[in-house]
Structures are given as C-alpha cells and as structure tokens.
Nucleic acid binder design. Structure first.
Lengths: 134, 134
DNA sequence: ATTACACCTTGCAAAATGCAAGTTAATATT
DNA sequence: AATATTAACTTGCATTTTGCAAGGTGTAAT
C-alpha cells in the first residue's frame, strides 16, 4: 500500500483537488457510485477498467479518510459493505459532469455514458440535482 | 520518459478525460496558462508545486500531442517558446472552475486563487467567457 | 570568445501501480 | 457440525511512473 500520498500543500485549490481525488482511479470509483448506482467492493472490482484489488482498497480507504465516501455494513447482507457518497462526495458531481461534457465533445468514439451526456444537455440542473440530493 | 500512458479504452468519458489530463501535473500546467497567464517552460518550472524538469517536458509533449496546448517560438525572444491553449484546452475551463468551487467549499485553508473563486461566484458565465474566448 | 539564459536530456533512486496468489469473516449447504 | 461459497481484503514481487540531480544544446547578449 502507498505510505501516504504526497501532498503539495501549495495552497492552490486545483492542487488541493488533485491531492484529494486526482489519481488514476478515485474519480472512476466515484463514477461507479454516482452514475452507475454501484456501491460494493465487488461491484467496483467488476468495473470494465479492471482496478487491482490492492489499489481499490487503498482508494476506498483514502476516500473514506477524506470523508468523500462512507462505509457501512449492508443490513440485508451482513457479509457485504455498502459504500455511499457523503455530501462532500456528492458535491463532486459538477466536476464529473463537466468531464463528461468535455469528453462528449472531444471523444469521437461511442461511449457508455452517452445517455448521461444527453440527460445533462437536456436538463443539467435537474440531472445534477438528482445526483446531488440525499 | 514514460513510454506511453496506459489508456483504458473503456469507452467511458470519465476514463477518457482521466487518460487525457488525469495525472498529477497536467491540470496544474493548464492552470498556469489559464489562470496565471504563464506560458513558458521556465514559468511552469517556477510554479510553487516544483515540478521536475523531465516530468514537465513529458507533460508538455503529451498535452501538445493531445492538441490541448500549442507550442510556438516567442517572436519577441527567439530563444523562448510560448505554450498556449487550443480551443480543446480552453474548453477545460469549466472543469477547473468546478474544482476551484469544490475546493473553495472544502479546503479551509487560505489559498492563492481565492480571488478567482470570488470572481466565479460573482459572475461565473462572464469569468468563464474571459478564459474560454480567443 | 565568453557568458548567460531557456529549454531540454539522461541516469539512477524512490514511489506508485499492476498482477497473482493467499487469508479472513460471514453465511449458506450438506 | 463440517464443508463450501461469497465478499472483502492482504501480501509479495515485478513493472511502470515519478522525483531528483546533474549535464547538454541552441540562441542571444557582452
């Protein structure tokens, strides 16, 4: 496991954001929860990008330590844990949406979340509210 | 130099964005150009986060290869190069702004771009237009 | 010709990531 | 009550990326 991600402490908000979720995997985990309704370790593992188990648990612990996600036992399946977004995590929605919009403009391939892009374009505020509210 | 950043090819716009600018440094270089008006190798090197020279040149080449920035000789100082954002690069502005907004909410320290955050809050569309237009 | 500046390259050490296999804890099955 | 299965991890080691320090190249000023 990584010791402790190197923080830049430059006092810049872009650097702060990158230090918090700016690695190769964190935003993909957040996407799983926010846009695909996935919320267990096994579901994250099954994501098409094939994250390694040690990296996954490391990022889940990190995001939990940063209060972006919360971990609780699944009351309906006591050997499973449910990861959910905190308000701080849900507030990342506009960042994800802007990335989707940008990629929608510049990635000419078909892609899985095209429907999400269409929903954003049709009613950004409404779609965002559906992600951001409790 | 890195051989060639490993692309995920998952067909997801979040993954596409991360493959393009989702490393520890690319968005900071874009911040230098977009928000601080810096546009030379030396200016990027002088940024407070202290990027290493090999990483800097690697990212500049990568961002140029992705058509996010353009490199040209400075007509007024022929031993210098000027890096500017392409339209594709300028279109990253909303993503940077959302990161700034999010960090503004959750980073309780004082930070350098607080003034930018205030401008965004006062007139997001106007501020964004000032970054995004030619 | 010498110096300085701006941009880069190179070699090596340190850290992060990726891969494969093994472990633990809760529940289901025989 | 033993055995198997599922879900969530852990560990060891190879590969890749990053970080650091030093050196090299092209342009221009003195």
């Amino acid at each position: 496991m990584r010791k402790n991600i190197q923080k830049r402490q430059s006092g810049c908000p872009i650097a702060f954001g990158l230090d918090t979720f700016g690695d190769r995997w964190s935003l993909l985990i957040i996407r799983e929860i926010m846009l695909r309704g996935h919320n267990t370790y096994s579901e994250f593992l099954a994501a098409e990008e094939k994250i390694a188990t040690n990296i996954l648990i490391d990022r889940l612990k990190h995001l939990e330590a940063e209060n972006i996600i919360e971990k609780n036992r699944d009351p309906e399946n006591r050997r499973s844990f449910i990861y959910t977004l905190s308000q701080k995590g849900r507030d990342l929605a506009p960042i994800l949406l802007e990335i989707i919009i940008w990629s929608g403009a510049y990635d000419k391939r078909d892609f899985a979340l095209r429907n999400v892009l269409e929903k954003i374009n049709a009613d950004r505020k409404g779609f965002e509210a559906s992600l951001t509210s409790e």
